[in-house]
Design a protein around this nucleic acid. Structure first.
Ligand SMILES: NC(=O)c1ccc[n+]([C@@H]2O[C@H](COP(=O)([O-])OP(=O)(O)OC[C@H]3O[C@@H](n4cnc5c(N)ncnc54)[C@H](O)[C@@H]3O)[C@@H](O)[C@H]2O)c1
Ligand SMILES: NC(=O)c1ccc[n+]([C@@H]2O[C@H](COP(=O)([O-])OP(=O)(O)OC[C@H]3O[C@@H](n4cnc5c(N)ncnc54)[C@H](O)[C@@H]3O)[C@@H](O)[C@H]2O)c1
Lengths: 206, 206
DNA sequence: AGAAAAATGTTAATTATTTCACAATGTTAA
DNA sequence: TTAACATTGTGAAATAATTAACATTTTTCT
């Protein structure tokens, strides 16, 4: 299941989120146009994505919610699970830690790091905060593969280098400072100001 | 300057962010490949984006940093400035309010709203928190056009409807619950779990 | 039973975005 | 003064993503 388009991967994650809610409400089947409605996209797009992962629904009945959830899991989750850490437990780091905890069994935040001695040793949503100085050691001990960076922008390049040296293979950078990583490391960056400016621009142009 | 690709708009915002840093450091000219390096993209892409906004650099000297910053501003900022509000001043709302304040003169967070009476009346980074019950009134009074939602997911649809009725024309939804808005309202949604799952997926497939 | 309706699955067409390739031209160095 | 070089600007090609169109199948209705 290699060559899935990037956009399809994003949508599969979103479908699953929506499907989990539907499943919790007791729905057993769902139509492509119902999924589409939730995600503000077209039904064809949903069907195409589902086709790409090789699932087939039942004609006139739609897709089996539980089966689809499980299949999406097989595609996007890694079997053994992946350990994640958050670096910088300020407002954003706490929001993320809080939001993620317990949401996905295959992705667990298992450590947070900070330089602030007042934070080291404390727990955030059940996850222990370690001293930045011990980061490399803990990343190896706990087999952490993905890092989320929420430190001040000016420290991002330095922390990024440390994370790469410690063996991280995926990074999510929420600081406003783009970082450089070797090509073996998968990097995703997101900045809220860019999103807001985009909204502001398209608001003007209807 | 209508038909700029969505992706170009996002990148222009990112270029400006980078250029502002360069300008602050005293750089007066910058090459396309230098901008490209910062953003992890190709120099051609940078040149094409700049071409699309009708700016031309100086051969072998690159682009004038200040001029380019100003031109990007003319394209993506609205002349009069836009007022923004944040609904739900929890961890994420505070992180956003903190991060945005003073960053962009043309986009100002001028109010935050919450239901928690303990928060109403307090100031967050200099911005007053109002009672949700007064939201419609305040949005009109303060001419707020864009809203950022950081309330619990289950309240998102209700708050979204209220915001639309109050006259909002752009919305940034950070709750995990997709919302429906009329087509006149420009909506952007972002979920960190989707980003993290994407990283996890591509980490597996090199 | 047969016709109409409502879905899925998929090929082909379209649209959006990125990259290639290279002409044009100013700069540096011999 | 000329050759080599470095950089911009852009048409054309390539790639990626979305949408249209429709055959197919199941269900429902008459
Ligand atoms: N991407 C976005 O959309 C977005 C939104 C909000 C904030 N931000 C950025 O996220 C980062 C964090 O924002 P915040 O509001 O949580 O800030 P914050 O100041 O509340 O938190 C920063 C935390 O990092 C810690 N820290 C500082 N230096 C460190 C280091 N070298 N190593 C480890 N920890 C360190 C601090 O002790 C603090 O706990 C900032 O860079 C901010 O600009 C990004
Ligand atoms: N998109 C993302 O990546 C991301 C990341 C983290 C959190 N989240 C989501 O953002 C939201 C906020 O997260 P948080 O960590 O700040 O939560 P939080 O509980 O710290 O904050 C929620 C705030 O909203 C207020 N609130 C509750 N109901 C309200 C209502 N009806 N109207 C106005 N205010 C109301 C609460 O009083 C509180 O101040 C949640 O939906 C969470 O799932 C999203």
């Amino acid at each position: 299941m290699k060559n899935l388009p990037h956009k399809t991967i994003e949508r599969l994650s979103q479908y699953r989120r929506a499907l989990l809610l539907c499943h919790a409400k007791g729905m057993t089947y769902i139509y492509s146009h119902e999924i589409a409605k939730i995600q503000h996209i077209t039904a064809v797009q949903v069907r195409r994505d589902i086709m790409l992962i090789g699932y087939t629904g039942t004609l006139r009945k739609g897709y089996n919610v539980k089966e689809l959830i499980d299949l999406i899991g097989q595609i996007i989750d890694s079997k053994e699970g992946i350990n994640v850490c958050v670096v910088g437990i300020g407002n954003l780091g706490r929001a993320i830690t809080n939001y993620f905890s317990g949401k996905r069994t295959k992705l667990s935040i298992v450590a947070v790091f900070d330089v602030d001695k007042g934070k080291v040793g404390k727990k955030y949503h059940g996850i222990e905060c370690f001293d930045l100085a011990d980061m490399t050691k803990i990343i190896k001990e706990k087999k952490i593969e993905i890092a989320i960076m929420t430190v001040p922008g000016e420290d991002a390049p330095m922390i990024s280098d440390m994370l790469v040296k410690a063996g991280i293979i995926g990074m999510l950078n929420y600081t406003p400072k783009p970082v450089n990583v070797p090509k073996e490391v998968y990097l995703e960056e997101y900045d809220m100001i860019t999103s807001l400016e985009k909204v502001a621009f398209f608001v003007k142009t209807h």
